[in-house]
Nucleic acid binder design. Structure first.
Length: 298
DNA sequence: GTACTTGTTGAACG
DNA sequence: TCGTTCAACAAGTA
């Protein structure tokens, strides 16, 4: 599930292949993905055919990221925003047969391209970019320019970037002041800090040795600091490792940019804690599965 | 057939 | 009114 580290490492790996290169043609196989925004049905301002035409002959100038959104900016000023949601992935296959992948982990059965989940295909001057999405929760939005994107208020209310300069201990402490929620709810709340999803919330809580259901108001100053440091460390390390997804599934040595191997608690309920050996507890917080170690976390 | 998965958000809650 | 939590939704898998 792409959270901030997956999106960021995908962005970094796509830059050398896409920036400076142009789109020759676009094929939208599932119009829904470019005409709706998640569960919010918008009266689409653009048809699938319009989407294809608008991006033809556009040259990519930069690839940016805001929260879990990938933002492709073109020389003309046009913008393509991609949200992978749960199961989206972008795969670029160059004409030299190099493959770059990011987002949702690839399934072994889906290594052929395009496959049945390839819903939007960009023919570039140096290869092909596939947007694959098994459950089709993701979306690709097109904007005429920066102003139009801002007008859409897609980023309204988002908190600070955890790996940016604005995320300071002071900011974090102030943001938590007076909150009555459980720690996990706070970490999941994109209005405070963006980019943390279910996986990294559990990992951050474990790294900080704080139980996820603790009420924020009862946290000590030291604990908040540990959580703050854990957010930066975990996300930073995960980005470095290439996220929890397979980074390059066609590499000869089969190596994987894989933070998943480093997960301490996520998806490990009932298994032994890697630190103390106790059985990890599994519970539900804010309607999300949560795993923690009762022994290690206080 | 059913339970379960996550990011997001409008609805409902207290 | 407001902060907080819930539930629904997207579509597929086990």
């Amino acid at each position: 599930m792409p959270e901030l580290p997956e999106v960021e490492s995908l962005r970094r790996s796509l830059i050398p292949y896409l920036v400076g290169h142009s789109i020759q043609s676009v094929e939208v196989k599932k119009p829904k993905l470019v005409t709706s925004k998640g569960t919010v049905r918008e009266s689409s301002s653009i048809s699938a055919r319009g989407f294809e035409m608008e991006l033809e002959n556009e040259t990519c100038r930069s690839i940016e990221r805001r929260a879990k959104n990938l933002i492709f900016k073109f020389e003309s000023g046009k913008i393509l925003l991609v949200h992978l949601k749960m199961t989206g992935q972008l795969v670029f296959k160059s004409i030299l047969n190099e493959t770059v992948l990011g987002g949702h982990p690839i399934e072994a059965s889906e290594t052929t391209l395009p496959n049945k989940h390839s819903h939007v295909i960009f023919e570039m001057d140096n290869g092909t970019l596939y947007y694959n999405d098994v459950r089709m929760f993701g979306y690709l939005l097109w904007y005429q320019n920066e102003a139009e994107m801002n007008k859409a208020q897609h980023f309204e209310g988002l908190g600070v970037e955890p790996l940016g300069e604005q995320f300071t201990l002071d900011y974090f402490k102030k943001a938590l002041r007076g909150k009555k929620s459980k720690l996990k709810a706070i970490l999941l709340d994109q209005k405070i800090v963006v980019g943390l999803g279910n996986i990294y919330c559990d990992e951050v809580c474990f790294a900080a040795r704080v139980r996820p259901y603790r009420t924020v108001a009862n946290l000590t100053s030291g604990e908040i600091e540990k959580i703050f440091v854990a957010i930066i460390n975990i996300l930073g390390r995960a980005v470095k490792a290439g996220g929890s997804s397979v980074a390059n599934y066609l590499m000869a040595d089969g190596s994987r940019g894989n933070f998943a191997h480093e997960h301490m608690v996520y998806n490990r309920g009932g298994k032994e804690c890697k630190v103390c050996g106790e059985i990890l507890e599994k519970t539900v917080i804010n309607s999300r599965t949560t795993v923690y170690c009762f022994n290690c976390q206080k």
